[in-house]
């Protein structure tokens, strides 16, 4: 199974690579659209931290937006976006201005709490998740602790939400749309629960790859 790990100039790709290695696969780091297309990956993992506008800019500069669209949207290769790697799936992203997202999920990325609110941001630390229905790819992980570090969140219609967390108010912790999956938290830094999630993602990707 070929696992593509997308590196586009921001974020700690090594942490995710290490976590995938612990889960029993050796990811291949791809740095632009051509590398991604040439790999013929069985699944794609895209990390990301920092500002979503910057992330989108870098994805487009490297031709990754087009290559990802062809691979994971048109061909349905399983995709896992982590933190900003999830947020870029939205239609619009408001962080230091408004940016056009990849538009795979009809949603917006907004600040977790308005300016001047008493909530401290970034939201940093371990928080529990609540599953919607069976939680889809998060099944069995209801109430588990995951490590979050972010100030912005995705807002989208209920049908795409598979888990929420609470910080002042409930917010979207994970989304799923067919084989497009996204988590706001960091499974690579979420100890045992994070390892379970990555294994589940890889298990789901395996029969599709075979």
């Amino acid at each position: 199974m070929r696992v593509a790990l997308v590196e586009y100039g921001i974020g700690n790709v090594l942490s995710v690579a290490n976590a995938l290695t612990r889960a029993g696969v050796t990811p291949v780091v791809v740095r632009d659209g051509d590398e991604l297309t040439a790999l013929d990956a069985s699944c794609v993992v895209m990390p990301g931290v920092g500002a979503v506008g910057e992330a989108l800019l870098l994805l487009r500069q490297r031709g990754l937006d087009v290559a990802l669209q062809a691979l994971v949207v048109d061909r349905g290769v399983p995709f896992l976006g982590i933190c900003v790697g999830m947020q870029v799936m939205a239609e619009t992203c408001e962080e230091f201005g408004e940016h056009r997202g990849l538009g795979w999920i009809p949603g917006r990325v907004r600040r977790l709490a308005p300016e001047g609110s008493s909530l401290r941001l970034p939201h940093v630390g371990w928080n529990t998740i609540s599953l919607r229905d069976d939680g889809d790819f998060l099944t069995g992980l209801d109430g588990e602790h995951f490590y979050f570090v972010h100030s912005f969140v995705m807002e989208c219609p209920d049908e795409y939400v598979v888990a929420t967390a609470n910080y002042g108010h409930p917010f979207v912790a994970a989304v799923c749309h067919g084989r497009l999956m996204g988590v706001q938290f960091h499974p690579e830094k979420s100890s045992q629960a994070g390892a379970v999630l990555l294994s589940e993602f890889l298990t789901r990707a395996a029969p599709i790859a075979a």
Binding site: S15, N18, T21, R22, Y147, E188, S190, S191, Q192, G194
Partner: peptide, 11 residues
């Protein structure tokens, strides 16, 4: 750093 990051499943 590399050595400990391999096993570091926490931040």
């Amino acid at each position: 750093i590399q050595r400990i990051a391999v096993e570091c499943r926490i931040p």
